[in-house]
Simulated assay, not measured.
Amino acid sequence: MTGFDWEGLVTFLGRRYDDVLELAGEHLLVVLISLAIALIIGVGIGMLVWNKPVARSVSISATAVMLTIPSLALLALLSPLLGLGWGPSVVALVFYSLLPIVRNTVVGLREVPLPILESARGVGMGPLRVLFTMQLPIAWPVILTGIRVAAQLTVGIAAIAAYVAGPGLGQYIFKGLSSLGSKNALNYALTGTVGVLLLALLLDAAFLLIARLTISKGLK
């Protein structure tokens, strides 16, 4: 790559401002869609297995193994089945989001104090009512932490999804790497990388706000 030129970067951004914003919006959207799907699947799995030792161990171990699969390899395997673009990107991001959500859901539900559960059952609450009205609200801070971790993972991995023509700022990173030595190679790579970092920080700040608004003061 050529040396860094601040004025050149400013000019580069000025000419591609709309494009950068569009890619940033796509990056954020694919992350949010993937997180929403992973949240439904992950919390659902956690609710089903939290009190079943064998199923719990298998679920957490399976999602942990899934996380060890290299992202480029997974995207390469998914692209023949789902084509290029959003399809393999969303599936891969959901895939990598499951471990922190499943694990934290299980941990959160198991950490609800036994006296609270016994009191709820003592007043006639059934298992489902106890789960939804007592356990999940108390476990929510732990579950939200898992979602927050998953969000940070997906923001970074979403950049790699550009390998299969996925949406987002990864397109600029790959364009910069594929054009090493050209005038704007560093500008492309730097814009994409810094953009991903800024999105990660903004998303993390959003989760801090969500935690502040949704977690009961008695649980803080």
Rank of each mutant, 00 (worst) to 15 (best):
M1P: 11
M1E: 10
T2S: 14
G3Y: 12
G3S: 14
F4C: 12
F4K: 11
F4P: 08
F4W: 15
D5I: 02
D5A: 11
G8V: 12
G8W: 10
L9H: 13
V10W: 11
F12Q: 10
F12V: 11
R15Y: 09
R16S: 04
R16D: 08
R16E: 03
R16L: 04
D19M: 00
G25Q: 00
L29H: 04
L29Q: 12
L29A: 15
V30I: 15
I33P: 02
L35F: 05
A36F: 08
I41E: 02
V43C: 07
I45Y: 06
I45L: 02
L48H: 00
L48V: 05
A55T: 06
R56M: 05
S57V: 07
S57T: 04
A64F: 01
V65T: 09
M66T: 03
I69L: 13
I69G: 02
I69P: 02
P70F: 02
P70E: 09
L74D: 01
L75K: 07
A76H: 02
A76T: 15
P80T: 02
L82A: 00
G83M: 05
L84Y: 14
L84F: 15
W86V: 08
S89G: 08
A92G: 03
V94W: 04
F95E: 03
Y96W: 08
Y96L: 11
L99D: 01
L99M: 14
L99Q: 03
N104K: 08
T105E: 04
V106W: 03
V107F: 05
V107C: 00
G108Q: 04
G108I: 06
R110H: 03
R110I: 03
E111A: 15
E111N: 15
V112L: 09
V112M: 05
P115Y: 13
E118V: 01
S119F: 15
G122V: 05
M125D: 05
M125Q: 08
P127F: 04
L128C: 03
R129H: 13
V130W: 07
L131N: 07
Q135G: 07
Q135M: 15
P141I: 11
L144W: 09
L144S: 09
R148G: 00
A150I: 01
L153R: 04
V155Q: 10
G156R: 13
G156K: 13
I157W: 03
A158C: 09
A161I: 01
A161Y: 09
A162K: 09
Y163Q: 11
A165R: 13
G168P: 01
I173Y: 00
I173P: 04
L177D: 01
S179R: 13
S179V: 03
S179M: 14
G181V: 12
G181A: 13
G181F: 13
K183Y: 14
K183Q: 15
K183I: 06
K183W: 11
N184T: 12
N187G: 06
T191E: 07
G192H: 09
V194W: 11
V196L: 10
L202P: 04
L203S: 10
D204K: 10
D204Y: 15
L209M: 01
A211H: 09
T214P: 04
T214G: 07
K217C: 02
L219E: 06
K220F: 12
